[in-house]
Design a protein around this nucleic acid. Sequence first.
DNA 1: GGGCACGCTAAGCGCTCGCTCACCCTTGCC
DNA 2: GGCAAGGGTGAGCGAGCGCTTAGCGTGCCC
Lengths: 212, 212
Amino acid sequence: MSTAEETAGGETQPWGEVTPDAARRLLLAAVEAFAERGYHATTTRDIAGRAGMSPAALYIHYKTKEELLHRISRIGHEKALDILRTASRGEGTATERLADAVSSFVRWHARGRTTARVVQYELDSLGPDARAEIVGLRRQVDAEVRGIIEDGVRSGEFDVPDVPGTTLAVLSLCIDVARWFNVDGPRTPEEVGALYADLVLRMVGAKNAGPA
Amino acid sequence: MSTAEETAGGETQPWGEVTPDAARRLLLAAVEAFAERGYHATTTRDIAGRAGMSPAALYIHYKTKEELLHRISRIGHEKALDILRTASRGEGTATERLADAVSSFVRWHARGRTTARVVQYELDSLGPDARAEIVGLRRQVDAEVRGIIEDGVRSGEFDVPDVPGTTLAVLSLCIDVARWFNVDGPRTPEEVGALYADLVLRMVGAKNAGPA
DNA sequence: GGGCACGCTAAGCGCTCGCTCACCCTTGCC
DNA sequence: GGCAAGGGTGAGCGAGCGCTTAGCGTGCCC
C-alpha cells in the first residue's frame, strides 16, 4: 500500500540521483517553472533565476532548454513505471493489486502534481527522438495496467468487455488528476487515491467495491 | 442522442456565429495553431498565415492574441455546457440521461479534439478576468453532471458514496479524451462515447450496464 | 463621379528570447 | 606558491516576438 521514499515536503523526490548539486537545483527549478507556465512560456532566465544562478549557468550543465525537459520527462516516467510495477508484481488478488496500483499512481500524480504535469502534458514539446523514447516508456506503463486487468478477467474477478479500452480509461482517469488536483483543495492525495481505487474497481466489475 | 449541427468534416462547428468572415477564418486558424503547438508557442504571424492574411490583419478583428484565446474558450465552453444541458434536461431515467450526457460529451471531445484541447488545456494562459469568466462556466458544467447523479441517487438507480468526487472523476474522464484521442486511431468517437457511457454507469453503480 | 469608410498590407518599433563568449573566482595537486 | 581545471558571471549576439502605423485599393452613398 505504501510506495517508499517520500519527503515530508509532500513532493516525492526522485531527483536525488541527479548528481551535480547545481544541476539538480536547475532541474527542480525547471520542473516548477514548466508546471506553472508551460514549457514554451518558460524562459531560461526564469529557470536560472529560480535556481539562484545567472542565465549562462544553465548551459554549463545542460546543452539546451529541451534537454532539461527530456531529463525531467524520462525520470518522471521511470518513476511512474516503477510505482505501477511495484503494485503489479506484488502479491494478492488482481482486485487488490489493481486497487493498489491505482491508489499509489493517483497519489503520485496528486502529491507530485508539479512534476506529473510536466511529465504528462509536455510530451509534444520534445523533439522526435526524445519523444520516441518517452512513448516507449508509456507503452510499458499501459502494458503494466493491462496485465493486471487481464489477470482479473482470467481469474473471474473482473467483468470487462473491452480490456484495451478500459485500460486506456483507467490510465486516463489517473493521469488527469495532475490537471485538476489542488494542494489547497478539500481532498488529500490519499483520499483521492482511495476514491479512485474504488471507482476503478467498479469500472472493471470487481465484486467487492467498498472503502477501507 | 444526437446533438445537431455538425459538418461532414468531422469537426463540430459552432463558429457559424462568428460574423465577419475574415474574423471566423482567423479564429479557426488560431484554434488549429493553439491545439497543435499550445498558446504560448503559437505566433500571431502563424495564425494570420494559416488564414491567408498578413500579420497585421489579425489586429483589425482582435485587440490582442489573448482575445482570440478568450473567444475560443468561451464559445467552446458554452457549446460543452449546451451539450450537457440538452442531455440533462431530456426525458428518461437518470441512468439514460447520464449515459446520454457522457456519450455526447465524449463524442464532442473526440470529434472536436482540436477545439477541446484548447478549451480544456489553455485556461491558465488567460488573464485573471477572462479566467474568472471561464471558471464560472466550468462550475455550471460541473453542476449539470452532479445534478444527474444526484437524481439517480435519489431515485435509487445509483449507489454513489461520494457524489462530488464521483462527479469530478466522471468529468475528468471525459475531458481527458481530448488529450489522447487520435483521429487516425482505432476507435471512432462514437465507439469511445459508448464505451465511456458504460464505464460511467458502472462507476455510479447503475443496475443495467450493457451496450445498446 | 467624388469622397470616404473599411479591410488589408509593408515596414518596422521596442523588446525579449535561447544561447555564446571572454573572463573571473575558487579549489586541489605538486 | 604556481597553476591547471572547472563552475560561475556580465555583456551581448542574431533572431523572432506582439503589436503599431502610414498608406493603398475597393465598393457604397449621394
